[in-house]
């Protein structure tokens, strides 16, 4: 593995925390400000990708192993579709969030949006990281000197 420049490594380590925190903010603050599951998922994936780019694929796969990524990308869709199934069993329509708090449908909407956006975020994170792993795990056809 190539060891990258010192400044790159230090700055990356400093940035990863804030990036993940920002992703969580975007995820759970999406009702109030621009953002939501799609953006948060991408930002969360970027945190792992930048770690992999600077410190090597093997290091990031110790933190976030591929089997976990593959489970996550299915889990997100499951959370989303599962929310609909739950509301069906409570006697409401599919994905009708009023089902969660029948006496105060507005609160149910809040809960529903939060859960559904979480599902979207988990899937998007999983897909983006999985795609990055797939590309990075291939043996490069171009050597580093050619760049």
């Amino acid at each position: 593995m190539i060891r990258h420049h010192l400044i790159l490594r230090v700055i990356t380590k400093m940035l990863i925390g804030p990036i993940m925190l920002f992703a969580l903010y975007v995820q759970f603050h999406g009702d109030y400000s621009p953002g939501g599951g799609f953006q948060a998922g991408v930002i969360m994936a970027v945190a792992f990708i930048i770690y992999g780019v600077v410190f090597g694929l093997a290091t990031v796969q110790q933190v976030f192993p591929p089997w976990l990524v593959h489970k996550l990308l299915a889990l997100g869709v499951l959370i989303y579709a599962g929310t609909g199934v739950v509301s069906l069993f409570l006697g409401y329509g599919y994905l009708d969030y009023g089902a969660f708090t029948p006496d105060h449908p507005e609160h149910g909407q809040h809960w529903g949006i939060l859960v559904v956006e979480l599902g979207v975020g988990v899937t998007v994170t999983g897909v983006m990281v999985a795609i990055y792993y797939a590309f990075a795990a291939r043996t490069p056809a171009i050597s580093d000197e050619d760049w």
Partner: peptide
């Protein structure tokens, strides 16, 4: 369009993966 952008990058990466296999 918001959802279309994320779907767009997913399909773009599918295209890129095909290019890798073609190569």
């Amino acid at each position: 369009i918001l959802t279309a952008i994320v779907v767009g990058i997913a399909t773009t990466s599918l295209g890129l993966a095909l290019i890798v296999r073609i190569r």
